[in-house]
């Protein structure tokens, strides 16, 4: 089996969870990784300060799309004010695959978009380069 493209990564890439649009939504953001053309947007519904539902949409490499899908399952139910405190290491650990420097931004794009939507901070999470 491939180190990077593990079965669960490819499964999330081919059948992404929480993907699509969400109308109406309370929060949204959209961003891209100009290096490789990965694009990702998010629609979020909030209740009682928590993320109750979210949908990613976009296109990109397997790492960026699978990472969004895997992380989406963590974001649902999370208090809004926790998102801004998440860092790149949290995400890389969650993915459980060796992410090289050249693929780091692919993996981190979903967190960047989430932080953009919840805190307005559109910078790369630490370690994003």
């Amino acid at each position: 089996m491939d180190d990077l493209y593990r079965d669960y990564i490819l499964d999330h890439y081919k059948r992404p969870r929480n993907f699509g649009e969400l109308e109406p939504h309370d929060l949204e953001a959209h961003d891209h990784n100009p290096l490789c053309g990965d694009e990702l947007g998010v629609h979020i519904r909030v209740a009682d300060g928590k993320i109750v539902e979210l949908r990613f949409h976009g296109q990109g490499c397997a790492i960026s799309q699978a990472a969004a899908s895997i992380a989406s399952e963590e974001y649902v139910g999370m208090p809004l004010d926790e998102v801004g405190g998440l860092d790149g290491e949290w995400l890389i650990e969650l993915l459980g695959i060796p992410i090289s420097a050249t693929r780091r931004r692919c993996a981190l794009l979903n967190l960047k978009v989430m932080r953009g939507a919840t805190t307005g901070d559109a910078s790369w999470p630490n370690g994003g380069g």
């Binding site: 053309g37 990965d38 490499c61 397997a62 693929r103």
Partner: peptide, 10 residues
């Protein structure tokens, strides 16, 4: 079925 970035990596 494979994004160019993944093609280059593979």
């Amino acid at each position: 079925g494979i994004h160019p970035h993944d093609v280059a990596d593979l």
